[in-house]
């Protein structure tokens, strides 16, 4: 089965539909935040997987810098694009959640802000990749920039959380009820499978492009 990732993607989609249905209809209402809290079942999985995506691009970057084999460069390219899509979606979800809950479109939630800054970094790296023609230089320079951007996440998280804690006290509520944990975990894996489909397909596209670019 050559393009196995299509089946993985479909499985993920199915799980996502079921998990979301469960989260929307079956899971109990959160005591304080009411139904708005149900956004969590798609928001938190997207957050985890976006961070996973950027970590995968860091792995790709280190892989390329050490071995210079093209498969790592494909990984960088596909995870950056996927991370940008899921990262941007995450910001939109965060805003939609924040409006009814705290009355503002954007709360300086440290996790969300760290991912948003990461998305901006990777937007820059995507621009860098499009401004460099030589494939080898493009791979090496974007790998270097990826390492710098990824290493920066803890600093961003630390500073934002500390700045936020000095001035306001919003933070997302901790979920306890097991009926809530089930759809959350299910959707987390669902989004993971969908992201694996995105990254694998992006990987194959990058490989074809590079084959043509490096054609004899």
């Amino acid at each position: 089965m050559r393009r196995w990732e299509i089946w993985v993607g479909l499985l993920g989609l199915g799980m996502l539909v079921f998990g979301s249905y469960y989260g929307l209809m079956v899971a109990p209402r959160e005591v304080y935040m009411g139904d708005v809290q149900r956004i969590m079942y798609v928001h938190v999985p997207t957050a985890w997987n976006t961070l996973l995506c950027f970590t995968a691009s860091f792995v790709g970057a280190v892989g390329w810098l050490l071995t210079r084999s093209w498969k790592w460069d494909y990984l960088i390219e596909s995870t950056i694009i996927t991370g940008l899509v899921t990262g941007s979606l995450l910001a939109v979800q965060g805003a939609i959640w924040a409006k009814p809950t705290w009355g503002v479109w954007w709360t300086w939630d440290p996790r969300l802000t760290s991912v948003a800054v990461m998305v901006l970094s990777f937007l820059g790296i995507l621009a860098l990749r499009s401004f460099v023609d030589d494939p080898v230089k493009r791979a090496t320079w974007s790998a270097t920039a990826t390492v710098l951007a990824w290493v920066n996440i803890p600093f961003v998280y630390l500073c934002v959380r500390w700045m936020a804690s000095l001035h306001q006290t919003q933070s997302t509520p901790k979920t306890v009820d097991p009926a809530m944990v089930f759809p959350l975990r299910l959707n987390a894996f669902a989004v993971l499978f969908v992201v694996i489909f995105f990254v694998a397909t992006g990987w194959r596209i990058a490989r074809e492009q590079r084959k043509r670019e490096l054609a004899e």
Binding site: G34, D35, V42, I96, K99
Partner: peptide
Amino acid sequence: VIQGGWEYVGAAYGISAVTF
């Protein structure tokens, strides 16, 4: 307790589905 808010939940899931 925040009343309603289903339109926000709908928007969040809708946009996520469309994006994916």
